[in-house]
Each structure stands twice: as C-alpha cells, then as structure tokens.
Computed example of a mutant assay.
Amino acid sequence: MTLHIFNPEHDIALAANLENFTSPHAGRQLRYELGYLPALWASADDVVLVDDVHEAEKNFQMFRTYVKRMGLRNNNLPSAHFVTKRELASLTEVCRAEPWGWDLAVRTMLVKNGISGTILPSISDVENVRQLSHRRITAQMLPLMQTEGTLGEAHEFFDSESLRSWQQSRGTVVVKAPWSSSGRGVRFFKDIAWNVNQEGWLNNVLKHQGSVMAEPYYNKVKDFAMEFECRAGKVSYCGLSLFDTSNGAYTGNILATEKAKEQMICRYVAEAYLHEIKEKAIIALEQLLATDYEGPLGIDMMIVNDGEDGLKLHPCVEVNLRRTMGHVALCLSELCNPDHDDEWVRVMRNQGTGLKLRLL
C-alpha cells in the first residue's frame, strides 16, 4: 500500500526548511480543494491523505461528473480511498509514501502522525532533495543540453555588487530566489539604479537563502515542459506538457495526445530537434541527480524570439524535482481520451473547487 499526499506548498516549504511549517493560506486552500488529485494515479489498494474526507469525496465525484458531462469516457477514472491524519497510525500496511514533493515539513508531519520513519527518506535524503532543488541545477543542466539552435545561461550570485556588475553588460535580467514557488521569488531588474523594493527583496533573499540566480531576459514565444520519472538511477520520459502562465504563475494545461502536442511545438522547432533535446535531458538528469533523487520531475522550457537569429529553444528554464501539473495533465489525457484522436484537445484549469476542462 502506498500513501499519496498532495502538498502543493512544497516549494515554499523547501525555502523555509522547517520541521513545523505552516503553509500560506493559498497553499492550504489549494490542498483542501484538490487533495483528491493523487487518486488519479494511485493504485486500487493505495490511500490518499486529505484534510477532509467528505470534501475530497465530494470534489472527486464532482470532477468525475464533470468529465462525463464533457462527453469523455470516464469509466477509466479510478475510485479512491481517502484518509485523514488521525487514521495514519492505524495504516500498518503502508510500505511507501509518495507526496507531491519531499521536504522536511511533510516528512515530519508523517512521522508525528504515526508513519514509520523506516519507510520514509531519511532527513539527510530530504536535504539532498532540497539541495538538488536549488535553482543552481539550471546552471548545471544548461551546458549539458546546449546544441545548435539553443540558448540560455544562468549564474549564481552571492552578493548584490557582483550581480550589479554582471547586469551592466546584460540590460534587463531575471533574478530568482534559489527556492520559491511557481511565479513567486522572481524579479525583473531593468535598470542599473535599483529601486528600494528591488534592493530590499534582493537583500532579504541573500540573507535567508544565501544567493540568487540570474539570467538574461528573453523574448518568450511559447512555454512548454518535458516530464520525466526517475527510478533506481534511471530516468524515463513521460511526455510533453503544454501550459499557460499569467505573470509567471501557472493557469492551465493542454490535454492532448503526445502526437498532437508534438505537432504544436513543431510549429517552432523540428521534430528531430525536439527528440534530441529529450535525449540530452535524460543524459543530463542521470548524470546530475539520478543517484540522489527518486520520483517524478519536470523541466520547463521555452521557445524564444532571438531577433535577427529567429526562433531558438531555451532547453532548461527550471527543473522541478517534484510532481507537476504537467504530470497531472498526462494522467488525465490517458484516462479521459475516448478515441485516441490526435485532434482531441482540451484545456485543464484549476477553478474554484476543482479541476475544470474546457474546449480549446
């Protein structure tokens, strides 16, 4: 039996690195409303930890009904066994735990509520995941993924003066906190004369996280990602994730067959080129982290308009060492696609009390 946990506050918990971490309200609300999500990939004998069993059952049933109303086949949608923290100590058959992402807070919560530490990663293992989740992994990945037609660079800075000196030759740059959630912890520095808010944010991140990552600003044309899974030191490819963002925050995923998604991306890059990047990503991931990480992960990428040089691919904007909404979209595409029609495309969005699908 595997215990599944949806802990969407994971990225913020990594930054805090506390055993007793209280998620911001938005994270708690998301966990309450979408706590049923792991039921989509859990096996029949597994259990899913939720805040409220009644709420999870209601929201999961609402989603199943919504899928049916959209005219999609939903007989593949699994049933689910939801539990709360109060029941964890009695679940003696649990032999594995799989959260959205591993951090010190989720491990501590499981131990405090009766899950044996012998089936969990050790504290040092969790710290290894945290260090690998530092955004410097992007700077390490990029040289291993570059090929003709790619661009991208990322640099780590430990003080404001070295960052300012580097920015002078770059103009607008994107500065990122080492650990932060999607759309947060990112600032655009456009002028050499930084304002008070920029100075304050930068100094605060340097004080609490030790460094910042910075990269040139690119003229983005299209966001997408490649999703992977790492097991026993080997990395396998799961599929493409085509998603939308607003002000850097995730807003929705396209649900489609792999062929249809490839066709969308191949409007910008050649298919053979896309496959080359995938193979380079697998090699780089196995080289840098496969011995220290087990579970799902994703690499955010983007198509960039590089002016006179035309469209180029940034092969590694971010590495997410956790499950992503891209993995959820892949799971839903497999569960809900009735005919495996290459033109079957819908958009998944988080709206209110659950996931919603709508026609493109």
Score class of each variant (00 low, 15 high):
M70I: 03
G117Q: 07
R130M: 10
L110S: 06
E199Q: 14
T257S: 10
E276F: 02
I303N: 00
P143R: 09
L40Q: 04
V173R: 03
H327L: 12
F157C: 02
Q209G: 07
K280Q: 10
M302F: 01
L77D: 08
F228K: 02
V174F: 04
A270K: 08
F21W: 12
H275Q: 13
A290Y: 02
K220V: 08
I254M: 08
V304K: 00
T84H: 00
L311T: 00
K176H: 04
D46L: 02
S122F: 06
R231F: 14
K259H: 15
G252I: 03
D46E: 05
T65Q: 14
L242F: 03
V186F: 00
Q263F: 09
R69I: 11
G35D: 06
Q61G: 10
R184C: 04
Q29K: 13
H340P: 07
A89N: 14
C316E: 01
R64H: 15
M141F: 02
G152Y: 04
E258D: 15
A89R: 13
L288H: 04
E127H: 13
V47Y: 08
T147F: 07
V186G: 01
A26R: 11
I254T: 10
Y66E: 08
I115L: 15
R187E: 08
E343Q: 10
W201A: 07
L355E: 01
E153D: 11
Y293C: 04
G298H: 05
V174P: 00
I5H: 00
A42T: 04
L240Q: 00
A249P: 03
H327R: 09
G185Q: 02
E55M: 14
F63G: 08
N253S: 10
N247C: 10
P99G: 03
Y32W: 15
Y32R: 13
Q61F: 11
D244N: 15
Q263S: 15
S165P: 06
K356G: 06
L72D: 03
C266L: 00
Y293R: 06
A89Y: 13
P121L: 11
P143S: 09
D292L: 11
Q209V: 07
G298M: 08
P8R: 08
K220T: 10
Y293L: 06
F21D: 04
S122Q: 07
E343F: 10
G117C: 09
L72V: 01
L144Q: 13
W201T: 07
A42H: 06
L332V: 05
F6H: 11
S333K: 05
E343R: 09
S23K: 08
G200N: 15
K207V: 10
G183N: 02
E308R: 01
H155D: 01
L359P: 02
E9S: 10
